[in-house]
Simulated assay, not measured.
Amino acid sequence: MSKPFDMELFLAGVLTGSHASRKRHLRQANLIQAEIAERWQRETPWAWQRKHLAWFLSHHLGSRSEATRYYYLLTVRLLVRRIEKPWVFNR
């Protein structure tokens, strides 16, 4: 039996800002992880490819407000920084 992935521990090195911002990033990162795991069975960010995050930003957030998409984009950028990939996502 394996332990569930700990997103808070994963992002600990790159997560900065106020308490509310850190909580928002963690909540959003957990949602991103759950959606990617459901769609592609990729449980951890180490197994993700750029297309997984691009899919989340375009399909899952397509009908959301501009502000919501922006905050999720900030979280995606944190995830990419943590997995040390050169991926770039624009608004």
Rank of each mutant, 00 (worst) to 15 (best):
K3E: 15
A47D: 09
R82Q: 15
Q41E: 10
Q41C: 07
R50S: 00
N30I: 12
L9M: 12
A47H: 11
R50H: 01
K23M: 09
G17S: 03
A67Y: 14
W40A: 06
P4C: 09
W87P: 01
L31Y: 13
V80W: 03
E84R: 08
A47F: 11
R91P: 10
P45Y: 04
E38N: 08
W55S: 03
H59Q: 12
Q41L: 07
R42F: 05
K51D: 10
T68Y: 14
S58K: 13
R81W: 12
N30V: 12
A12C: 08
A67M: 08
S63I: 00
M7G: 02
R27L: 10
E35F: 10
R22Y: 08
G13D: 14
R82M: 08
E38K: 11
Y72L: 04
F5D: 02
Y70A: 09
A20G: 02
R69Q: 13
L79V: 12
D6Y: 14
F89T: 01
A37M: 07
Q33N: 10
A67C: 05
W55K: 02
H25C: 05
R69P: 02
R50E: 10
K85H: 11
R42W: 03
M7D: 01
H19A: 15
M1W: 11
G17E: 05
W55L: 07
Q49D: 04
R27H: 12
M7Q: 05
S58T: 10
L57A: 04
R27N: 09
N90R: 13
L57W: 05
V76D: 00
R27Y: 15
